[in-house]
Write a protein that binds this DNA or RNA. Structure first.
Lengths: 238, 238
DNA sequence: CATTATAATTGTACCGGTATAATTAATCAA
DNA sequence: TTGATTAATTATACCGGTACAATTATAATG
């Protein structure tokens, strides 16, 4: 086991909340109890709780206690859990159809966002993703080939990020996301099975490794009928 | 000065980055230097840096250093900086027109989201917000009157959140946001000066105090032509 | 009985320490 | 020059402590 102690503790607390179906506002044991229960120091427990707070699982009130944070709505895709719908849409069946997969030169836009020259190679991946048989989104991705050295159609039809982490041993760090609402083009509408001119949500994301290198620029166009999003914010920094 | 030491340090580091126009990837002084420079312990510096990391200002690489994180695009509204566009759209001129302001009973939806009964009072506020003279969004808010005890048209035409914090002395904690793309209704289109059926982004947010009480449920409908959004995610919790 | 003052509870700020893991730089061997 | 080994740098995990601030419970007061 190479998982850190505070991560383990965070997981166990989260599992405890799940298993006992705790609701918003329910109180967790006090710090000292958690310390002895997990045989960890105060700072380790606090670190675990901070993690859970950032994940939106708990909130802490000074002088009062640690409470469960829950949101009510189901079926929303979290914009913050960085990659993949798998976690958010567990109850649903998400599949991918690979339209295109090849090594090519990046567009100007992709090159700029990946911080590479237009002469360098990228893997270009185009997929349509389905949820319960209906189109969820159209996805175009550009992977910096000098970092993501190899992809094939099998990998691409599964979870690319799992492969990047497990297969390539890379560590995904942070991402910048840009959202825009617009009308569907003819081509997009075709892939999504909608009419041109219908609303769309376009999400552009630049994914970075932990060392700050951008390795993936992707543009995802969502079917507005299928896509509901969710963001949990903490005003810890106001 | 009642600002905490680690917050002050975070502010100073952020200011330093701004003033020196540091770019993505630029390295900050090492921990020990920061410790002596700010006359603070290691853990306090780390706390300041964690804050900045969550704000998307820096990223830390173990064994290597602390680096500046920057995104390139301007004019995007950050979904995470919790309230108000003021900060994000500093360079732009944002104004509000109050359409309605009154005490009333909540809708079923509002009551459910504010966790109150339908017989309790809420302040209902309806505003249209403009950016550089163009319509940005239509906003409908429900404030729990037992928490937000008083509002008037002057407050509402300015920043309501500033008043909540400064005037009422309340502390805003966390918020849950739900996003959806759809087509504009006749009424919405009228307020925004667009055609019915045009795309819209609808954002519903439930704001909570630090103690977990929901005090504001708001539905904001954005003019798709004016609204671009931005999210900085950290995969620290994967 | 309501109000106010006081005490107990509980989380946070801040200190500072040791050991460790990731990265980068320096050294050495082929 | 290249590649591998070693060393130096640097941030992180984890420990545990004191003082303090916010909240909640209790006691005192009228």
């Amino acid at each position: 086991m190479d998982m850190l102690k505070y991560q383990q503790i965070a997981n166990e607390i989260e599992k405890y909340i799940e298993d006992n179906k705790l609701q918003q506002g329910d109180k967790l044991p006090v710090l000292e109890t958690l310390m002895s229960q997990f045989e960890a120091s105060k700072s380790t427990i606090i670190k675990a709780l901070d993690l859970l707070e950032r994940k939106g699982v708990v909130f802490q009130v000074r002088g009062s206690g640690i409470f469960v944070r829950r949101h009510k709505r189901k079926g929303y895709i979290s914009l913050l859990s960085n990659q993949g719908f798998k976690e958010n849409l567990e109850d649903f069946h998400v599949t991918s159809e690979v339209i295109e997969l090849e090594v090519r030169k990046p567009t100007e836009e992709a090159a700029a966002n990946l911080n590479i020259g237009r002469d360098e190679d990228v893997y270009y991946v185009k997929r349509v993703r389905y949820i319960n048989g209906q189109t969820l989104c159209l996805e175009e991705s550009f992977y910096n080939k000098s970092i993501i050295t190899y992809l094939n159609s099998e990998i691409v039809s599964e979870s690319i990020f799992d492969y990047i982490k497990e297969g390539l041993g890379l560590k995904v760090g942070f991402s910048d996301m840009y959202l825009q609402v617009d009308k569907l083009s003819e081509e997009e509408a075709g892939y999504l099975g909608l009419k041109a001119g219908s609303p769309k949500l376009c999400v552009e994301t630049i994914f970075h490794l932990t060392n700050g290198q951008p390795f993936d620029f992707s543009k995802v166009t969502y079917n507005y009928e299928q896509s509901q999003f969710f963001v949990q914010a903490n005003s810890s920094f106001l």
